[in-house]
Amino acid sequence: MTISDAAGHVGLSLKKNPSSPRTLFSSAMSVVATLCAVLAVIPLVAVLYYIIVRGLQYLNLDLFRQLPPPPLGEIGGFGNAFVGTLLTVGIASLISIPFGILTAIFLAEFAKDTDAPEENWIDFAVNILAGVPSIVMGTFAWATVVLLTGTFSAVAGGIALSVLMLPTIVRTATEALEAVPGSYRQASVGLGASKIDTVMKIVLPAAVPAITTGVMLAVARAVGETAPILFTALFSQFWNRTVWEPTATLSALVYNFAQVPYPNQQNLAWAAAFVLVVLVLFLNILARFITRKRG
């Protein structure tokens, strides 16, 4: 008896049946999933395309040197807002980076060792803080700084943004520290190094690339945020003399000027939006590039 004879007898139904409900369902779902992915990319492309088309045509170096214009007339510039963004985000970074990294060291290096419940509570607080709406952080900074100092200021804006950046930095830095192999720590401690030496000279340097990534993502988010700035840094038509006065930022400029009927201010808003997007995307891409290169 040959094998093919036997197949005839048995009549096993191994054949494909493209019209069976199971196969049809599978094919249909694959199409649906593909469509979802395409659908998601459309808004990104649409936003970027529109910002580039509208923003790029007004872009020139003078924008970075001049002040925002009065309604009607020349386009002016966003020099003070650009400086203001650097100023507020700089202040926010000065506060949140050390704060975040020290918290991460506590979580990754100390709280884990002692198996203490406080680690859970801090972890929990970080997650909850990450979910607090950014505008609520603005009201907090207003009540804490603006009310106390009696003036809207870059410092108030910076403090609002620092609260925003904190959870991102704590999370990424904790992950980065935990990813450092335990053998490094044992090697260092085995040589008689103290905890502080081990952390500062061995563990932290090994985690720096991943921490940098987290910090850049946090900075990118702060650069683009508007809600916490609205009533902390407020806005200003002028150059800053100190950090204790109302301060313009790029994001607030986009918000303010996009809503006005004057073409020159609208155009400036587009150019500012373009700069903002370029800055944010650049930071994001750079952040990922650092981590990938390391891996």
């Binding site: 036997a6 197949a7 096993l12 191994l14 054949k15 199971r22």
Partner: peptide, 21 residues
Amino acid sequence: IYYHGQDLYAPDIDPVEVRRQ
């Protein structure tokens, strides 16, 4: 590869059905 004389990797064979049996 023959399975009871059928070519398991013939283009019209459904791998899902194969795994069932």
